[in-house]
Amino acid sequence: MRLTLIQGDITTQEVDAIVNAANSRMRGGGGVDGAIHAAGGRAILDDCVQRFPHGLPTGQAGWTTAGELPADWVIHVVGPNWNAGQRDPSLLAACYRNALAVADELSAQTMAIPAVSAGIYGWPLEDAARIAVETVRSTPSKVEEARFVLFSKEIHAAFEAAAAE
């Protein structure tokens, strides 16, 4: 698998699947989640309601339509909320492993991935980047390109440092 890092807007990526850092209710929210729902339109929320009537637990992943996004699917992962005391690194790693497993189920060859839990959920950035890069690199998958799409220069720099290790 080729791992790439770019600074940019995940909602504009032309990939098979876009990973969404969702909340456990699966009804949209702020940050990446809000941006994906806004850009993809109502179809994503409608699919979330139908496919996940009770939401998803932390660390799990599931897919929906991508609506109006330039992708085929959105793979929703529920990241751990550091600020709410969810500090088990295995939960964050599970998000990436489960996203790759769902991508394989969908036969997705390319995927765009945000920095899960590193924003509003408060996971320390360097640790979040290390867990993300190590997990994606070490998880067997048929995905050809895992593209981390990072919103700010600071997040991009942290992921570059993690990728260089």
Rank of each mutant, 00 (worst) to 15 (best):
K153R: 15
Y96E: 05
A101L: 15
F52W: 07
A112I: 08
R87I: 12
E145I: 13
S117Q: 03
R42M: 12
A17M: 03
G29V: 07
A35S: 08
P89E: 14
R42C: 07
V77T: 02
I75Q: 00
S138E: 15
T11M: 04
P57E: 14
D88V: 12
G85E: 11
T65H: 13
F148T: 04
A118I: 14
Q109K: 15
S141W: 07
L3C: 06
H76K: 10
A132M: 08
T65L: 13
G119S: 07
S138K: 14
D47F: 06
H37T: 07
S90V: 11
M1A: 10
G62V: 03
G28M: 07
S107R: 15
S152T: 15
V143T: 03
I44F: 05
A43F: 11
V32Y: 02
G85W: 14
V149M: 08
T64V: 09
K142R: 13
H76D: 02
A84H: 14
A157G: 09
G59V: 05
P70E: 12
A158H: 07
G59L: 01
A146D: 00
A39P: 01
G67S: 08
T139S: 03
M111S: 04
A61K: 02
L3F: 11
V74R: 03
S24K: 13
S117E: 00
E144W: 13
P70N: 05
D47H: 09
G79H: 03
T110W: 07
A66P: 03
E144I: 09
V78T: 05
E14C: 10
W63F: 12
I131V: 15
V149N: 04
S141T: 15
D9F: 08
T139G: 05
N23H: 12
I36K: 04
T11I: 07
F52N: 01
E160Q: 13
M111T: 07
N98Y: 02
G30P: 11
P124W: 14
A38H: 13
G55A: 04
A161Y: 04
A61E: 01
H76Y: 12
G8F: 05
W82I: 05
A21Q: 00
E154T: 15
S152K: 13
G8C: 10
E126C: 14
V149P: 03
R87M: 12
A132Q: 06
V143H: 03
N83T: 11
T11L: 06
T11N: 01
I155P: 04
S107F: 13
Q86Y: 14
A39V: 00
A101W: 12
D88R: 11
E165V: 15
G8H: 09
S138R: 12
L150E: 01
S90P: 09
A128R: 04
A108S: 12
H76N: 08
